[in-house]
Computed example of a mutant assay.
Amino acid sequence: MTASLFAAGLRTVVANLPAMLPAKDDHWRRAWGPIACGLPILGWVVLEDGPWVGLIVLFAGMSVLRWPVRGLRAQFGRGV
């Protein structure tokens, strides 16, 4: 396991903790930290492990941040 995949896994676990708590704003305030940390880690994963592994890490990150992603989709008219 490369260091970038370890960092991505650690980021997923740490981002999951506040995502389990209820929030009135669809978790947007809690989502900015994992998004800001996840983007450089995603670039690092793509650089070290390739784009296919990067896509898997991207989808894993989106699954943790599912409520902000659904809220963003609702803003653009696609519904939930």
Rank of each mutant, 00 (worst) to 15 (best):
M1S: 15
T2H: 10
T2V: 12
A3C: 13
A3L: 13
S4Y: 09
L5V: 03
F6H: 05
F6R: 08
F6Q: 10
A7Y: 10
A7F: 07
G9Y: 07
L10C: 15
R11H: 05
R11A: 13
R11I: 10
R11C: 13
T12K: 02
T12D: 07
V14L: 07
N16Y: 11
N16G: 13
P18Y: 12
P18W: 13
M20F: 09
P22I: 14
A23K: 02
A23M: 06
A23L: 11
K24E: 08
K24P: 08
D26A: 15
H27Q: 08
W28S: 10
R29Q: 02
R29L: 01
R29D: 06
R30A: 01
W32I: 02
G33C: 10
G33K: 01
G33L: 10
I35V: 00
I35R: 00
A36E: 10
A36S: 13
A36G: 08
C37Q: 10
G38A: 14
G38F: 00
P40W: 15
L42Q: 03
L42R: 00
L42K: 02
W44F: 10
V45D: 02
V46A: 10
L47G: 14
L47V: 13
E48Y: 14
D49A: 03
D49P: 14
G50D: 02
V53T: 04
V53M: 04
V53L: 05
V53N: 01
G54R: 04
L55C: 09
L55Y: 06
L58P: 13
L58K: 07
F59Q: 15
G61Q: 07
G61H: 00
M62R: 06
S63D: 11
L65Y: 02
W67G: 05
P68W: 07
P68A: 05
V69L: 08
R70T: 08
R70S: 12
G71F: 14
L72H: 11
L72W: 09
L72P: 09
L72I: 13
L72T: 09
A74F: 11
A74R: 06
Q75I: 09
